[in-house]
Design a protein around this nucleic acid. Sequence first.
RNA 1: GCCGGAGUGGCGGAACGGCAGACGCGGGGGACUUAAACUCCCCGGCCCCUCGGGGCGUGUGGGUUCGAAUCCCACCUCCGGCACCA
Length: 846
Amino acid sequence: MSADSNILPERYDPAQVEPRWQRRWEEEDAFRGEPTSRDGARADLPDRPKAYVLEMLPYPSGEIHMGHVKNYTMGDVVAHFRRRRGDAVFHPMGYDAFGLPAENAAIRTGEAPAVVTDRNIARIRSQLRQIGFAIDWHTEISTADPEYYRWTQWIFLRMFERGLAERREAAVNWCPRDQTVLANEQVVDGACERCGTQVELRQLTQWFLRITDYAQALLDDMALLVDWPERVLTMQRNWIGRSEGARVLFRTDDGTHELPVFTTRPDTLFGATFFLLAPEHPLVGTLVEGRAEQAAVLEYVRAAARESLAERSDADKPKTGVFTGRHVVNPVNGERLPVWVADYVLMDYGTGAVMAVPGHDERDFAFARAHDLPVRRVIAPEGTAADAPLEEAYTGPGRLVASAFLDGLEVDAAKTRIAQWLADKGLGEATVGYRLRDWLVSRQRYWGAPIPIIHCATCGPVPVPDEDLPVLLPPVQDYAPKGQSPLATNPEFLHVPCPRCAAPAHRETDTMDTFVDSSWYYLRYTAPHLTTAPFERDVVDYWLPVDQYIGGVEHAVLHLLYARFFTKVLHDLGLVGFREPFARLFTQGMIHYMGAKMSKSKGNVVSPDDIVERFGADTLRLYVLFMGPAADDIEWSDRGVIGARRFLDRLWALVRAVAPAEGAAIVERPSPDSLAGVPDALELLRKCEAVIAKVSQDIGDRFSFHTAISAVQELVNMASRAAAAEQGGQELTQATRYAAQTAVSLLFPFAPHVTSELWTALGGDDQLWRHPWPEADESLLVRDTVTLVVQVNGKLRDRLQIASGLAQEELLAAARSLPRVLAAIDGKQVVREVVVPDRLVNLVVR
RNA sequence: GCCGGAGUGGCGGAACGGCAGACGCGGGGGACUUAAACUCCCCGGCCCCUCGGGGCGUGUGGGUUCGAAUCCCACCUCCGGCACCA
């Protein structure tokens, strides 16, 4: 424990180092983004390349967890890297603050949701600061702030004006526990995404955003998302669920009602033997009015309404249905088809009516068997007779039979032909169906942005005038959900005059789904406090699309689809100049612990605070990225954290060894000539350049942080051995210093505090955060000696250190003189010689 | 069923047609220590061996290639998404 003159303490103590640097950055305002929109004055936008680096904003439910740490560390590394590369970097942070958890916590504790939320935000903010994230705190936003949700409401009204937000009755998903309706996307396997309760279907009048109008655009613009993970694109494609088919117009046999259907198999139209309506189909009641079947049909409809979503959508359930006593006419051949009501027909896909072709559709076949309805073949595969009976639905390829003018055509040709025929007769046309449903955004809960609409008996739903925004959340006595929004319990809020006719009217009391809030927050960061508009066109057009978006794959459909939709709408409104918000997306894997996803309910949470306290924020940051590929789910390892800390200890010791006293100065890259004659020094220099190149590529192009850290570890290991070497002289010392410096500089994005400390000890200034990112000396990446791999018949036989750039003949001669090679080719004939210069020789023998 | 992704030491993983197992964790041995911890050094795919080396190895089986963890085909397993969507 000798006192020494070293500027650094002997022991690395993060508790001493980290707060000091955090203060320093704050004083310096180091991570302030380039100009964003502020009222009145705004400086010019930078004319450098920009980098908008964004992580999905946290939900302030309590504190941040390891998943957040990993997410924000990745963003931080990219932001630091791009900043030091000279880009104008924008790296903001905010809070997705509305939503059920804060409200439920408020109900439990008797506090107001705003109080709970503010406390949670304060807590999260302090954690983020403690981990040293390089965030532009000037642009911090909360979606629950009236300053923010004013503009959420404003955007809603723009959609309302365009008919993209509308109120209508539909069978909707209802969570009996949360006492609110849910979007389709928030129902997972028939259960509420939030609380896991089985979802019910209810016929209710609700607010919808017409995302289906954008179904095709959402598919088409995926072509712009070149840097999105394939699986996210696939999930979105599946969710949108485009299928091509035709609309075919059926009529009741008495000619009183039209019943169009959507089918993907118009080619099988001659095979239709019955006709189905969804229980919710609006014509069901009319069609059975006064008929003998009326009672049975209405009872069936009521029974279907009682089913849960999970029951209703169980494909293995027997096919039930009831005959209406009515018939429709098949437009292609005039046949009368009996009309049944069946609960496997969905009202919200296609038209809620289906032509049933049991011969070529598995569900219709099962229904026909269950209810003794005829099955007819209209497609015969190669080698099958046209009248061969069907024991199951045939859905494969073949030629049309028993189909009049379609006979003999292949399936695809028949589809085209029949679509044309229908169009010519005015009985239908080729069309496209989507699985995607409109987005149900109204919620019967308190803690969300009020929907800015006033209901008037004469004028209908009337938008709140823009100048009256925001519609503030009113104070209420009781936040608890009762199936109706708590906002309705505040009479002053509820009763207002109609803005159009001044007659007594009442406010809409539902609030908006929180996914509405998070569908445009990335735009608001560019103008967080602007009071005249949600953002400014030229500023968003400069910063957007986001250059790198990072978040969890659980948002692959929900948030990412909604945000894409919003951007397209805003584009069509002329408010932004781009159609896609996120150019590059990275979805991170989850952190598991003790074999399961970390979660409070499982009691297997490792607290980031705890790791910061025991090992330091830098160790935490380093470890979450060193664990393994950032996209993969990986098991947390307590030992692994210690390993990360040990590495920082080694780096600390290395810097102490190379900068033993005050007054050190940053050294230039030594020239290879100056190191001539000291092979270890030259090797170390080359290693530095190779690592610079690798780390730059791993961060910049590959998103491979764990290999970047590995590379720096290799460099530190090599430099530490050199520092401990007793021989090597001035040359080796020079190279070692340069290596330590390089390692510190490259590691900065991962571990900014300790590297800033070490950088000053090495004689650098206290602004490593803006020190230019190192550039590898290409000439040093070219080796003057290389390892030549020598194979015989593709098997490794020997290795040879050899000068680079030798001719093929020289390489062959060298290879063929090796004893092991001679032994391997002894007595055999060399039939081929493969030479890859500077790399390998392969002798093929027989 | 359809669509995507992945299978490499005891573990996390590396190697993006050319040395399989970098880096780290764990393990073994040694130095330091009264002892231990820390730290440092050495050894760690499997099987043979005359200690020089040899054989086999990246889920399985084929193929392409001078050469395959890597490319192609088939299969198996796991993970994720969609699925009564007509």
